[in-house]
Design a protein around this nucleic acid. Structure first.
Lengths: 212, 212, 212, 212
DNA sequence: CATTAACCGAGACGGTACGTCCCGTCTTAAG
DNA sequence: CTTAAGACGGGACGTACCGTCTCGGTTAATG
């Protein structure tokens, strides 16, 4: 399954086949423009010109520039790892660390662009949520689930809220830029999440009555 | 001090004074368009037409549509309250609740628009960070500081991280739309933050060595 | 060869070909506005709106409204005739008469507009001079040349000056509006020019020494 | 009498008197812009800025930029001379020569601008015709009249047509730029006009029947 | 000698048009 | 049947000037 705007033709059909070279050139040109000139400058015309491709070819496979960026992101082999170190703290740290690092480096502008676009395009927001975000949340869910099975934390831990507490701060720093996305931050978030999760054990009633 | 794009002349200067009526009409028209047609449809030309104002008048005082929205937001009397209930949990809840509620209602689209714009305009990002975001973070800092003075929590609590843990999840839900922004969410975030902060007390070494 | 602002592609090239219908609509709309509302009102936006065409399409082929008018004028099949009646006087009269008549009627506003524009745009002035004006001057040159071959006038007649004496007064009346552009004027100018040319014959020395 | 757009107050009235310095600065700034940047760049805002004057002050005394230029032209002491050498040829030459010279030099751009403006503004055209053009035509009329009194030329000479034949070519060269405005041209035009006028003498019937 | 009327600079205002960018669609010839 | 090329109608951009309109601040003749 792909994250692009339109379905990929599967069966081999008559006529000139799709140019894989064009596809590559488009993705590459889009990333280059995004990295060097920013999201503002990422236009279909600009990508077409830089890739030496016609606009129509782009529109045939992607419905907007944002989908190109999304595909560039997801087609990258660096998918979220699901570490299994045997301990919640280390599992979480290993999950978070590469993402924090990537967002702090050249993945930052890409992610910013995707989220910005999602605020103005509901269809794209849905795609982004279900393809990219859900993947990471599920990785975390699996990790927390294993900790519950091991008895490290109680079964009453709110996995959805945990995901919010882990990924929220990351996104916040990325988008607001008030602090660095570095290893210290990854450690701090990990510690906070673990402490929060462990303190839940044995005190499920408080949450229940507080949220009434 | 204002959050607008350009400085407001303070001293009475020569020349025709700025029209307060135009200013009001512009802000109002911008909010109306944003609420009814979305951020995509928020163009300078559209605002000028609806407000019965020339484009030049808008550009004279704001450098883009985003600054108009930001000013509409900050000129609103509903500023972050700094509650003082005597307890950390209730203080935090009172701080968060109105914001969560507003973002879940008609403030949502505004905030989404501002953050989206900030990703494409570094100058605006700076303005948003220093005018709006900083205000809320400082309100939280004050609140946590009082809890420290009361001895509710230790002095080693990381106030910056706390702010990330409180506002991050909120922003995440707003932008990703994977869950509701309601009272239950406000309670959950409050509980998680309080528990995290209290568990810090007496265990400063863990954080210190973990973050090495 | 055309008088338009940009070169006309001659070879069949890739890409969608130029829309002949748009071209026609633009020229027609421009002439209509010029005739009914005057040159002041001849704006690119107005032409685009009336022709049901985008501004870009106009700018793609003409660099300003003046070039549209010039093309409308030169694409008209009514080009300067080169009469051959066998006599200088009648040849000249037949050359001048239709032009005087046209300038006195609906061609007047067009010509005024073109000349006015040329005073503010050197590039257009050059185009107007080489495409339209030169055509008429050469028609006159041919006519005078034939009279010289016939022996009606001397070979020392200054053809450039003759053109000035024939077209100058016409332009003067058109632009200054101090007198009518009618048949009587065409006759008077013709007579004056013929008398002047014939009086040259046999008195070449006077001119030569006077102009020293 | 002045050639400006509005009447000059004659009686001394109450209130602050008109600033002669502003007037001078405006005229000077207008001429400077016209000479260095061309007619296109001659805007009220530009003149106001360069003269250090408010726009209102300009509009109070002139109704458009063209009137400023016209006043700058007519307020200049160099008015058309009415030479009286005793001979038609020399009278005419002395009348024409300074004008041809001036138009060939720095008066050219001014005259071009005035005529261009007149084509788009009927009110200004009328002003230009009656103030500037008529003055020169009348000087020529006087000159031709004296030649008739002396018997140099016949009384049937068409003085209006003569003015067209003298000033038309001048204007034509100025506006079309196909040839220089120099002394040789002044001589040539003078000779042509004189020969034409003299050939009229004694042959009034030809003109009469030709123009029918 | 204060009043008052007109002038002056500065500059904001509602407008119109500019020329450009980019959108998403289309129409051609070439492969 | 895809591709590069590129023209098309359309929408918005940000800018330049237009001519008008307040402002505060002169500057003289008049009462």
């Amino acid at each position: 399954m792909t994250a692009m705007g339109f379905e990929n033709p599967v069966r081999t059909r008559a006529g000139r086949p799709r140019s894989v070279e064009s596809r590559r050139a488009i993705l590459q040109a889009a990333m280059l423009i995004l990295q060097t000139q920013g999201y503002r400058a990422l236009t279909i015309e600009g990508v077409a010109a830089k890739a030496g491709v016609s606009k129509q070819t782009i529109y045939r496979w992607w419905s907007s520039a944002a989908y190109i960026v999304l595909e560039a992101l997801t087609s990258d082999p660096l998918q979220p790892p699901v570490p299994d170190t045997g301990g919640l703290h280390d599992d979480l740290l290993e999950l978070i660390r590469p993402m924090v690092k990537a967002l702090g480096a050249r993945r930052g502008p890409i992610m910013k662009a995707l989220i910005a676009e999602a605020q103005a395009d509901a269809r794209f927001a849905e795609t982004l949520r279900t393809t990219f975000m859900a993947q990471h949340r599920e990785a975390l869910h699996a990790l927390v689930g294993r900790a519950q099975m091991r008895g490290e934390i109680g079964f009453d831990a709110d996995r959805e809220l945990t995901a919010d507490l882990v990924y929220g701060p990351m996104l916040y720093r990325l988008l607001n830029g008030h602090g660095p996305l570095d290893d210290a931050f990854a450690h701090a978030v990990t510690n906070a999440a673990v402490r929060m999760l462990k303190s839940t054990a044995g005190t499920p009633r408080i949450r229940a009555e507080a949220a009434e």
